[in-house]
Nucleic acid binder design. Structure first.
Lengths: 140, 140
DNA sequence: TTAGCTGCAAAAGGTTTGCAAATTA
DNA sequence: TAATTTGCAAACCTTTTGCAGCTAA
């Protein structure tokens, strides 16, 4: 089934006139294997186990292409590097300013607030791209 | 009254064993004059009109000192540089991913959500440090 | 006097870009 | 063949840091 997903993504790539290359195959595979948030750096490390030639800039470029394709998204959890994940795994993030721990929120966590912003400001909230900060139970 | 505020901040600085210097005076004045969000870059430009010698790194260091003092806060509105403002002007931000326009929210905007996160996860939300993204009316 | 600041230059960290060579379709 | 990707090196942008000299208290 991971293979299905891989084939499906490669198909999307081709149908846009993109090429299927060894680096891209490796990067998408690593992304599917990771199963959760990974930084570009972590991804290149994983990918280098399959092919040590693959360069970080190729990872960034592929990630960008996959983002355009709507297959990948990235989230800013804080001051450090962005983390990437497959778009079908949509969720929100709470990050502790003190210890950095992350709480994942269900997709409906902002429905009420989103409705209110829509009504009050005509603003369509999408709080997925930046995490929300605060202090977790242990650090409160 | 801006002078009052300046004197008050300088007093806080001194009471911590800090020194009152010409660069600091200029930076705080510029911050008070700005009245709203400014980047470190914008701040150094404003400050250089008073004293062209003042260096960007001094601005960053002063901003850090004032943050420790609880006088200044900074917010990340998106991918660019952080913006700084006086702490007594507390509010939240909605940023349009498309056009970058900013909506300022009143200090109680997240009360309900914060209570819910507190209850459900023991997480004390503080959504001031990173803006929330979405699409404004014009870009929806 | 002396702890604390400053300017400057350099580095750090994450990401992007120019380019010529390699590869896909 | 023609268009797309790649690796590499270098640039980019914001912020931080090391250091020697300067200055406020």
């Amino acid at each position: 089934m991971a293979d299905d997903r891989l084939g499906q993504i490669l198909g999307q790539l081709r149908s846009r006139g993109g090429r299927v290359t060894a680096p891209r195959r490796a990067i998408i595979t690593a992304l599917l294997d990771a199963g959760e948030h990974v930084t570009a750096e972590e991804l290149v490390d994983a990918v280098k186990l399959m092919d040590p030639e693959i360069h970080l800039s190729t990872v960034y470029r592929t990630l960008e292409t996959l983002t355009d394709l709507g297959v990948v998204d990235h989230v800013h959890l804080g001051h450090g590097p962005a983390v990437y994940h497959l778009s079908d795994d949509a969720h929100y993030h709470l990050v502790c300013y003190h210890c950095g721990s992350i709480i994942e929120l269900p997709p409906d966590a902002f429905d009420a607030l989103g409705d209110r912003f829509q009504r009050d400001y005509g603003f369509r909230l999408d709080a997925r791209h930046f995490a929300l900060g605060g202090h977790c139970r242990a650090c409160a």
